[in-house]
């Protein structure tokens, strides 16, 4: 086939346009969802948590989390009298199958479900050398697993231990706040499976979200506030011994 100069000059821009649309990527998965209208967070009501492990199992089923790794897990604290600095913390298999029975004992027990705190000033996104992890415009901290090198810098940077390197994909993995669900109007898998309502997804930009009334009337805390991470997972009645 021979090409005249005229044909070549017509074909070149056409090829460029085709290449552009190829690079533009996949279309929007949730057409009725506007990112800038949301600012996602979660409320955890510690006095309601019974340590059943439903959230951990639901998260693993929903997000294909490999065994032995956790996007969310539950810790059981046992604080003996005034020893706030030395709580005994257990989390057998992330609390996935519940906890051993505790007999009536001195001190107090409580469960602390943990997950990514979706920090507004997140240390993990700041250290990524390639821009593979980021805070989406709706406040969810996400990982672009096609772009991630697996250097694990973010795993070290997270003060809450919420990230891990996926054993098969060899890239960083973490809680997405069930991004594929919340962008379609559903709640997260952990909130859906929680039998007592101890976990509630909240949208801080929605003035009608019950979280606003709750935050006004309860003693609410975030984890490690001294680290100024802008954590958006709020804990009701959090004990001072929780690390």
């Amino acid at each position: 086939m021979t090409l005249t100069r005229r044909q070549l000059l017509i074909l070149l821009p056409a090829a460029a346009v085709a290449w552009e649309s190829l690079l533009a990527g996949t279309p929007e998965a949730s057409p009725n969802y506007t990112m800038t209208e949301h600012w996602w967070s979660m409320l955890i009501d510690i006095p309601k948590c019974i340590g059943c492990g439903n959230c951990v199992r639901a998260c693993q089923a929903e997000n294909d989390v490999p065994d032995g790794f956790f996007r969310t897990w539950v810790e059981r604290y046992h604080v003996d009298d005034w020893h706030l600095a030395n709580p005994q913390v257990i989390s057998p298999d992330g609390g996935k199958e519940g906890f051993p029975v505790a007999k009536e004992d001195e001190g107090k027990y409580f469960f602390v479900p943990k997950l990514c705190n979706q920090c507004a000033d997140s240390p993990c996104t700041q250290v990524c050398p390639v821009g593979a992890t980021f805070i989406a415009p709706d406040g969810v901290v996400l990982v672009d697993q096609k772009y991630c090198l697996g250097c694990a810098y973010c795993v070290q940077a997270c003060p809450y231990g919420c990230r891990y390197i996926h054993p098969e994909k060899k890239v960083a993995d973490k809680c997405t706040l069930c991004y594929h669900r919340i962008t379609k109007g559903l709640t997260t898998a952990c909130c859906e499976a929680c039998p007592t309502g101890a976990r509630q997804l909240a949208d801080l930009k929605n003035p009608n979200d019950p979280i606003h009334a709750f935050l006004k009337t309860h003693s609410v805390q975030v984890l490690k506030p001294q680290m100024a991470t802008g954590a958006k997972v709020f804990y009701n009645a959090l004990d001072g011994s929780v690390r």
Binding site: A24, T26, L142, Y179, L186
Partner: peptide
């Protein structure tokens, strides 16, 4: 949207729903 691949957001949102 920032120093990352914007298309990653819709790729993550395309994960299948189980519950």
């Amino acid at each position: 949207y920032g120093h990352y691949r914007g298309a990653a957001i819709s790729e993550i949102a395309a994960h299948p729903i189980r519950f």
